[in-house]
Design a protein around this nucleic acid. Structure first.
Lengths: 278, 278
DNA sequence: GCTTGACTTTGACGTAGCGTCAAACGGGCA
DNA sequence: TGCCCGTTTGACGCTACGTCAAAGTCAAGC
C-alpha cells in the first residue's frame, strides 16, 4: 500500500489528480484510514489508473470514462463513441490547419509590409433580403459614382423610410468585360413588388439578394482609393484560408450617404461569398 | 445607434459576448444611458469588433487582443506572438494527428476482435536507477523462469530490504539470436558498488539502468501466456501512434514474487523505450 | 392611459480538469 | 519533544462565454 504521494509518483500523475479521480469515483483508494482520512492505494490499482489515462489520451472526457471502467458499455457503443470522436478530431484538425495558414499569411504580411494593415476579415452568414435595384453597365468609376449617388438620393426620397434599409451595390463579374456590370439599390425591411422610377427614367426593380452561408466580409471607412487595399486584403485572406470566391461581391453602405462629394466618409462592408476551395 | 441586441445581430455575435467585451474593456458601447444602463453601439464600432473577432480566430486570447487594439504593440512584438502561436498550433496539430491515428487503431481493434482488450498503454518517463543484476543467455522459457526465480529468491534473502527495490528483467535483443539475452536483477534505492554472489556461483553486478524520457508502458497481471498479448498490444500501439522502439524492453515486477509456481499472480509492467518515428 | 410582450440590465452559477494556496493535522526521525 | 515533510479538506482560479433569474424598459396596440 502506498500513500497518495508515492502512488502519484509511481504513476506519474499529480496528487491533485488522484484526489480528483477519487472524488469522481473513477479511482477510489483501496483503503482510507478512518482516523486520519489518509488515502492508501494498492499497486493493483495501477492498471485501472492507466486505463483512465489511456482513454483520456484518446480524447474522452472523464465523464465518459466512468461507465467504460465499469464495463457498462458494449463494444458497439464504444465504437460509436470513438467514431464520433474521430469525426470531431478530423474537424478540429481542419480548423487548426486553416488557422495555421491564416497565421502564416499574417506573419508574411508583417514581414513584407513592416506592420499590420486594417485587415479584419470576418466570416458570417447573411440571410436573403428583398432588394430594389437597377442594373447598369458603367464605363468608368466616375459613372459608377454618379449612378450610385443618383440611386441613393432618389431612393432616399422615393422609398418610405420604414421600408428602405441599406444601400447595396452588387458587382456582377460574370463575364470579364471592360464595363462594370453592377446592380445598385436598396435592401428592404420586407418584401415588396412595387417598382420605383427615378431620375433619368431609370427603374428600380424588386428582386431578392440570395442568402449566403459563408460570406467573407471586411468593413472599411471610405470607398475610393483605400477600397482597393481592402479588396486586396480580402483576396489574400481568401486564398490564405483555403477558400475561393463563390458569387458576386457586394458593397453594403452601413450608413446613409451624407456628404456631397465622393463617398470618403462612408462606412462600407465589402462582402464576398466564399466556399472551401477543393 | 443600435441597442445591444440589434448590434449583436448585425455583427453575428451574442449579446452576452458584447457585454463581456464591454466588461473587459475591449469594446465599450459608444453611449450608455445613465438612467437605464442601456448600451448603445454605433455602427462605427463594427470594425473594432471585427478586429477582435479576426484576432480571436487566429487563436489569440482576449487578454492578448486588448493591447493590440490600442496599438500598444509593435509589429515585431506581434510577429513574435504570432510565431509563438504558430509553434503551438503545429505542436497541437501533431498531437491531434497522433490521437487520430490512435483512435483509428482502436476502432480497427474493436472491428477485428469484437471488443476491447486490456490495452492501456501509457507513456511516462523513468529516471535512471542503480541496478544489481546478472546477464545470461537462456535457451528457452523454462530456463528463463528458473533463472528469474533464483535471482528473485536469493536477492530477497541476500540484499537488505532497505536497499532492494524491485525485480527488473531487461531483454537485450541487440542481435537476433535464438537465445534470449537477458539481464535479471533488482533496482536499488540508492547506488551501491557491492556485488552479490548467489546460488550456482552466479554474481549480481552493480550497474545502472539509464533514464528514458518517453517510455511506453503497460501493466499486466500474470506473465506467461497472457504476456504475449500484452507485447502484441504495445507493439500495435507503438506503430499506430507513430513511435518506434528505441532501446531494450524491461519487465518490472511491481510486487515481490510470492507464489511458488510460475509468475501468474505477479503484477508486471512492460516498458518499451520509444521515440517518434521519422 | 394601460397592457402586453419583446428587450435589457445586473448578478450569479456552470463549464473541464485540474493548479495553487491556506489552515490544520499526521508521521517518522533526531 | 521538536521538526520537517506529507496529507487532509476547502476554496478560488483558469477561458470565454451560455444560461437562468429577477427586475426594470421600450414600443405598439387597445
Amino acid at each position: 500500500m502506498f500513500r497518495l504521494g508515492e502512488f502519484a509518483q509511481i504513476a506519474q500523475v499529480s496528487g491533485r489528480q488522484l484526489r480528483f479521480y477519487d472524488q469522481l469515483g473513477l479511482l477510489q483508494p483501496a483503503h482510507i484510514d478512518r482516523q486520519t482520512g489518509y488515502r492508501y492505494y494498492s499497486i493493483r490499482q495501477l492498471p485501472r489508473l492507466n486505463c483512465i489515462l489511456a482513454l483520456k489520451e484518446l480524447g474522452l472526457s472523464l465523464e465518459q470514462i466512468g461507465p467504460l471502467l465499469e464495463n457498462e458499455i458494449s463494444a458497439a457503443e464504444l465504437r460509436a463513441m470513438l467514431t464520433m470522436k474521430r469525426a470531431q478530431l478530423e474537424q478540429s484538425l481542419r480548423e487548426e490547419e486553416s488557422r495555421l495558414r491564416h497565421i502564416e499569411s499574417r506573419i508574411a504580411q508583417i514581414d513584407s509590409q513592416g506592420a499590420m494593415g486594417d485587415y479584419d476579415v470576418v466570416v458570417k452568414s447573411v440571410a436573403a433580403t428583398p432588394y430594389l435595384s437597377l442594373r447598369c453597365a458603367c464605363e468608368n468609376m466616375d459613372e459608377v459614382v454618379r449612378m450610385v449617388r443618383t440611386v441613393a438620393e432618389d431612393g432616399s426620397r422615393l422609398i418610405r423610410p420604414a421600408l428602405r434599409d441599406k444601400l447595396i451595390v452588387v458587382a456582377r463579374n460574370d463575364q470579364i468585360d471592360e464595363k462594370l456590370d453592377l446592380e445598385i439599390g436598396f435592401s428592404l425591411t420586407r418584401a415588396s413588388n412595387a417598382n420605383v422610377r427615378i431620375t433619368g427614367e431609370y427603374l428600380l426593380c424588386a428582386s431578392e439578394l440570395p442568402a449566403v452561408d459563408t460570406m467573407a466580409t471586411i468593413v472599411r471607412p471610405g470607398t475610393n482609393p483605400a477600397s482597393h487595399c481592402a479588396f486586396g486584403a480580402i483576396g489574400v485572406w481568401i486564398e490564405a484560408n483555403g477558400y475561393e470566391v463563390a458569387g458576386s461581391c457586394r458593397e453594403v453602405f452601413l450608413e446613409p450617404i451624407t456628404g456631397p462629394p465622393g463617398f470618403e466618409g462612408a462606412l462600407v462592408e465589402i462582402q464576398f461569398p466564399v466556399r472551401a476551395a477543393i
